[in-house]
Structures are given as structure tokens and as C-alpha cells.
Design a protein around this nucleic acid. Structure first.
Lengths: 191, 191
DNA sequence: TACTAAAAAGGACATTTGTCCCATTCATAA
DNA sequence: TTATGAATGGGACAAATGTCCTTTTTAGTA
């Protein structure tokens, strides 16, 4: 549920310590919007500490959360490959510490550092691998099943992530989420 | 709706003509399952001609179609980066012509051909960019809106793709799809 | 402490979608 | 040509989810 990539986190920190390229450290408070949908930015970020959410909002303001990003997850990288606007917003949930690098530095690294290249390639592949089953599962199973599944992979999710975000992650309304939680409680399946 | 990547198609054909690596041409009939979920394979495919579907099936046999793949789309590449089982099945819709390359050849290309590396990287990024808004849109809009949207980006979709596949792509039952189509017809919004 | 806004919980009802059927059409193979 | 199974279309009802609203709880702040 909260994605991470410890290998990438370790590697980017190693690069940072070596003082290579123009890697920069940044800190953000909770509830800070780092990236806004449909804009252009010129840095790629890797999370070193904390949790943020990556979401799409539609014209009615509805949010659909794509993933929760934890240590080692990168964002802003898609726009390096296809020079278009961002498709997601990124907002911190907890205070966040990141390392970031400019598009040109990122490209240099991809070109010259074969291990970095492989790590980024694998990170992209993992995002795809992860998304596919999640959406199909959510679509074809009732809310209760989705909650039990979340509980299994991340037992304390209800205390870290607010109801609205959980609902937007599963793709239902808060009302429906509450209903499902209540029903589970009555069945003695505490969440 | 039917994804394509003409740049990659052209590039892989150029490599094939040069006789480089171990690129091999293959043909498949319609309704042939090329890749089965939860298996291991050791080749990466690029579609040169035809249409196939990429789908996940659950334990009840329900299919959820991830994308329809057209010219230039690759499949089987995710398993090069993370050495795990396939997450999707690939089945042809029309007769299909592909070029394929072994995992080791693919890795060699990534390592030695910087342009190929970039094309693959971009292809992965595009798969992510494409998936995100699609799923969130499907989730938050009624079936009719989804159909009108499909109609806009691919007007003749109903004649190329069977009802079951369209339903599995949108993530609804065939019954619901038929209901929506009928309602649209009554509103004079022919599809 | 008292006030305020946001988050959480849930009642009542409407709407959408699914499930379970059955009838019809279409394509294909015997 | 006939037989067979798949694809299509839709009726009737059940179940899941959304919408709209109100109340309660919580957390933060004057």
C-alpha cells in the first residue's frame, strides 16, 4: 500500500554524499503540495524519509489516489521521458525529506551510470507491475475485501492515513468506506 | 484505447533488418494466447502488425483488460527487470506479427544501444502515464460517459472488439454494457 | 477554557450495477 | 443443410454504492 524502493534510496544517498551532479536535499511539512497536476517542473525527486500521496484530481475536485509513496520512491521522473505536463499531484502526508536532481543531471546519470539506469528502469517496471493488479482487484471485489487486503499488507493503515485518503485510494466515497468498516466490525473482523 | 508506439516499431524493425542480436519474427493466429499469467518466459515481444489484449484474470475466471496493444507495443519486458512471474496474459485479437528477442539480447541492447535504452524507458513511462488517468476516470464516471469517451478516441471500436472485451476493459459486466449502449441509443447518441 | 473548523459516523433514500435468467442471432463445423 | 456453441440483447430483481444531510468527535487556536 505504501510503496518503497530501498535500493534506490540507498543509491541516491550514496550519490548525494559523493557530491556528484547537482543533487539537493529538501524538507517539506505535512500537507504540503510539492507537485501540482498539469504543470511543468524540472526536477526529479526521491523520497528519503516520510510518506506522501500521489493523486489525480478531476474537474469536479474528486481525488483518485494512485499510490502512497514512501522511502525510495521517485516522482517527477515521467516528465523527463515524455516532455509533457504532470499527470498527478504530489502532496506530503507526514513531513518529508527528499533528494532531488535536475532533468539534465538525471539524464546525465542515466547515460553514464549504468547501475543507476537499471535502478530507474526497474522502478518504472515495478510501478506498472504494481498498478495493474491493484486496479483490477479493486474493481472486481467489494469494499470489505479490499479493506481486509489492505489490513493484511499494512495493518496500521487506519491510524496513518485519514479516511478520506483511504476512500480515495480504494476509489469509493467516505460514506461507503464507513459502511464497510462498520459491517466488518459487526462481523468481528476488527480493522 | 489501442496503444501504439510507432517509434519503437520502426527501431526494432531496423535492428531486425540489420540482423543484429537474435531478433526473430513470429506470426500468430487470432485468439491465440501468447503469454499466460503467472508463468515464466524468456523473450520480449514487439508487435509489428495486428492487435492483442493484455489482461489479468482472477481466481473466478473474471478478466480485466489492461490495454489493447497495437503496433510497436512491447510485452514480456517487465519480467526482464524484475525476475518474477508474468502478471498478465497476452492474447491476440487479430492475427499478429511480432519481433521478439531473448532476455539476454534485450539486456545487451539496453546496455550498448543508448537510443534503444531511451525508447524502452519512454515506453515504460508512457504505460504508467496512460494507465493512471484511465483507471481513475473509469472509476468515477458512469458507463455511458466511458463509452462516449472511447467512441471519441476510437470511433469504430465496437466493430473491432467484441462486447465481452469492451466490458472487461471498462470493468463492468456485459449486461451493464448493453444497458448503457441501449440508453445511449435512445438518447440518439448512436455508438 | 471556550470556540471553530475539520474529520468521522451514520440515517434515509436514489441510482447504478450485478446476478440470474431466457430468447435470438450468427458463425462454424459436421 | 443441419446442428452446436458462442455472442448478443434484454427482463426482473437483488445488492452495492452514491447523494444529501445531520450529529458527534477531535484537534487546534484565540
Amino acid at each position: 500500500m505504501i510503496r518503497s524502493n530501498l535500493e534506490l534510496a540507498a543509491y541516491i544517498q550514496m550519490l548525494y554524499k559523493k557530491g556528484a551532479y547537482d543533487i539537493r536535499e529538501e524538507q517539506f511539512n505535512a500537507k504540503h503540495k510539492i507537485i501540482e497536476q498539469d504543470r511543468r517542473y524540472n526536477r526529479v525527486y526521491v523520497i528519503v524519509e516520510g510518506i506522501s500521496k500521489c493523486y489525480i484530481s478531476d474537474e469536479n475536485g474528486k481525488e483518485f489516489i494512485q499510490e502512497f509513496l514512501g522511502e525510495g520512491m521517485e516522482f517527477g521522473e515521467l516528465e523527463v521521458f515524455s516532455k509533457k505536463h504532470t499527470i498527478c499531484s504530489i502532496e506530503t502526508i507526514t513531513p518529508l525529506k527528499t533528494l532531488s536532481i535536475s532533468h539534465s543531471g538525471f539524464n546525465e546519470l542515466l547515460e553514464n551510470d549504468s547501475l543507476f539506469n537499471q535502478l530507474v528502469m526497474k522502478a518504472l517496471a515495478d510501478k506498472i507491475r504494481y498498478k495493474a493488479p491493484r486496479h483490477s482487484y479493486q474493481h472486481s471485489y467489494p469494499i470489505e475485501d479490499n479493506l481486509l487486503r489492505l489490513k493484511k499488507i499494512f495493518p496500521e493503515f487506519t491510524s496513518v492515513i485519514c479516511k478520506k485518503d483511504i476512500a480515495n485510494y480504494i476509489g469509493v466515497t467516505v460514506r461507503s468506506l464507513n459502511r464497510a468498516l462498520k459491517d466488518l466490525k459487526e462481523k468481528n473482523n476488527q480493522i
